[in-house]
Amino acid sequence: MGYFKEVSSASWAFCEGLWITLRYLFKPSVTVQYPTEKLVPYERFRGLLLFDAATCIACGLCAKACPSACIALEAQTHPETKKRVPKAEWYSLDLGKCNFCGLCQEACPTKPKSVWHSLDYELAFSTRDDMVRCWKPGFPLAGRVWDPVQKAFRDPESHISVREVQARI
């Protein structure tokens, strides 16, 4: 008798569960078909770090604010007087170390921000060299990558879709 009771209660629970899933079968799916369908993150989203050499004053506050020491930069010096000029000679970011915490962006005193989190979330690197982005005056906002074999800068291989204007406060 207990056996039949068990069987009937289990099958009733089975039907109850199926009834819930059946109701969802006729509702629109919530799954995002990722590679073909891409969501745009919210305004505050902290994605890939970008840098703008044109507005940077090479104060180094971002490098001080960074908890993982992934930012390095050097200010230009005047060719004749040898004095420090408020422009970045070079700027580099190690995205392999980056925490995506946003402290560098908050520390940046310029307006608009010289270093900021864009909305890019497709960050995949095929080599470790790709993770280190470098900027020199005239480089694009996404930066370039130093190729140790060719001894030259090249564009990052796997970089997709820089939405540069968005999220730059």
Partner: peptide
């Protein structure tokens, strides 16, 4: 996580 993304910019490590 969407609510968090809109509020603090990250989905897992909020800071």
């Amino acid at each position: 996580l969407d609510l968090y993304e809109a509020l603090c910019g990250a989905r897992l490590t909020y800071n």
